[in-house]
Design a binder for these strands. Structure first.
Lengths: 335, 335
DNA sequence: TGCCATCGTCGATGCGCTTCGACACACCGC
DNA sequence: GCGGTGTGTCGAAGCGCATCGACGATGGCA
């Protein structure tokens, strides 16, 4: 292993000088800098992460807590993770992956072992049991999602309430008088997942204020569940002409089931989805959608984290405005 | 921060004794052990990861290199990652996420900074440029996939060649005389992705030996690409009755396109997919499939890594046997 | 020419832990 | 009762780095 001493010897300077060249925390003459940098390159020197962490109490590692559930949208989670890794690397940080399954104790462990400098937490629940612990942790924490009482925690997410409004407004503007929300699986609601709750709230408020008949239904991933869900919704209101789908996994099954029922999209029924754009474009009938900007949320989460690490102490709550793209799956209902 | 000294003081022993209690590397009297363990619990002591890494040159971190591409199956990647994290935690290790985009240099960095104890590398290519570098690294490395010259590297993956054989055999046994492979996107083949190449080879060999007319076609994710792909295949051989789909993302589009063409599954055309079971079951017509055992591969990869870390020096290549499940999407062709 | 301020570099110290050799004590057999 | 063999515990050293105070050199100004 090549150490800072090796570099110092090669360059004919003191180890501390090498350290200052690397960190830039003291001024260095151009001559010395060149000398040191050449030696670093020549020897292929990389500072020992452990030693650095010990001496500086900074690990340059961000921990990310992800849900392992398959009832969440894996594609979105993956996209988020990917952009977070990339953004973290851009700030010279690495990403450590934790699972929600490990529970609050894992957060304790990471914090008190000084494994990471900050925490990013996905799949936040309305009354998330981890929040009090996170507050006590005195590490910077950024939540992806918004719990009921974020207190001193930073949060970032799509504004799902506004997203729901946008969906309802789009359909209502087209003239739909009866629309239904097909939501995530019951388990997601049951544990009070932040985004599901917020979307539902937005949907309820918007349909009420637009004077539109509304129904909503949680829906598991299986084909049977989708079918049963449509059965119920159509039975409850045969005049249903608009569907807001806040459950990406269900889309393929839903569309093919509609076809089986002889319901054409958008002629007989309009469908607007909350999903990544790539997913919306992938269907035979391209879907009107509100985008889930997983990539931007990931980037933002990292940026907020880095700001906290840089000393910004005031937590921010950032809700990204929804972006609705009209494609082929929505139209005015037939008179 | 509570240190090993605090624990030692609280327990009335030397710091080194505390260390030995934790590591179990020397025998400790039951009395002392209890004393120390109580203090640890009472103080909520967690060893400082950096200090530990510095002193022992072990980080208890596994690095995993994942592809960020969206032309790979995100669900499979996610499932793999999830099981790897879980398996790693079971061995008291954490998982650091790297992206393939960072290139070979990132592997160097991780190795020489002593950020991780071992590397797991996904999305391996036939002639992967990272292989020579990995060999030089003197960290344990486990590849997910099999390059042309694994030399001294451990590998684990589904036996895609055998999987292809199984698919062909299933269709041939049912009586199909003309079948086609719909593979991953052209880009995947172009960069020589290990699993795609191996599957194609297996497909070619099996169709040849079973005397079945065969065609194969790379296929991008878009609906247009799927459509064009089917156009070509059906034009080339109107007698086509069996489809082997080695591209999960394309399944929904493919199935709905077939329906549009008036081709019923399985009456007019049989479809067998290579995809996770959950995905196969999710379609209106449940799909006969060869499972992609992402979870088991993830677990195995970690187990192999841990074995290497434990001193097992001989690299192993482990190919998991394919498991075919017959569902509703395959049947004998009509006479 | 002499003094002070500034800039660039150096040495020493300590971060929290593991590990090695040393050591104290108890217990065995003769 | 003595030497010998373990067993359990301790103290010290050192892992590779960041950081702080100190110090020499250089240049400006009087």
């Amino acid at each position: 292993m090549v150490t800072i001493n090796d570099v110092a010897n090669a360059a004919g300077v003191a180890p501390s000088t090498v350290s200052y060249v690397i960190s830039g925390k003291r001024s260095i003459s151009p001559k010395t800098r060149r000398l040191v940098e050449d030696s670093i390159r020549k020897l292929g020197y990389h500072p020992h992460a452990g030693a650095r962490a010990l001496a500086s109490s900074k690990t340059n590692v961000l921990a990310l807590v992800v849900p392992l559930r398959t009832d969440l949208n894996v594609a979105v989670v993956m996209e988020f993770v990917a952009s977070a890794v990339t953004a973290a690397r851009a700030h010279d940080h690495d990403l450590l992956l934790l699972t929600k399954d490990e529970g609050p104790a894992a957060l304790q462990r990471v914090a008190s072992s000084a494994i990471a400098d900050a925490l990013m937490v996905m799949d936040v629940e309305t009354a998330d049991p981890r929040v009090p612990m996170l507050l006590a942790l005195d590490l910077p924490v950024v939540l992806i999602g918004v719990p009921d009482h974020p207190a001193g925690l930073s949060c970032v997410d799509l504004d799902f309430t506004a997203a729901a409004s946008a969906c309802v407004a789009h359909l209502a503007d087209l003239g739909h008088r009866s629309i239904a929300l097909i939501g995530p699986s019951p388990a997601v609601y049951r544990r009070g997942t932040s985004y599901a709750t917020r979307f539902l709230r937005g949907f309820d408020e918007a349909t009420k204020s637009r004077d539109v008949r509304a129904a909503s239904h949680a829906c598991a991933h299986s084909y049977e569940a989708v079918s049963a869900c449509l059965d119920e919704l159509l039975a409850a209101d045969p005049g249903l002409t608009g569907l807001v789908v806040h459950n990406e996994a269900v889309l393929p099954g839903l569309l093919s089931d509609l076809r089986h029922r002889g319901l054409r999209v958008p002629e007989d029924i309009s469908v607007i989805a909350v999903c990544p754009d790539s997913m919306a474009e992938q269907h035979a009938v391209a879907l009107t959608n509100v985008a889930i900007p997983a990539e931007e949320v990931g980037t933002q989460a990292v940026e907020m984290t880095m700001r906290r690490l840089a000393g910004h102490t005031t937590p921010e709550v950032r809700l990204l405005g929804p972006r609705l793209t009209r494609r082929e799956s929505t139209a005015a209902p037939r008179a």
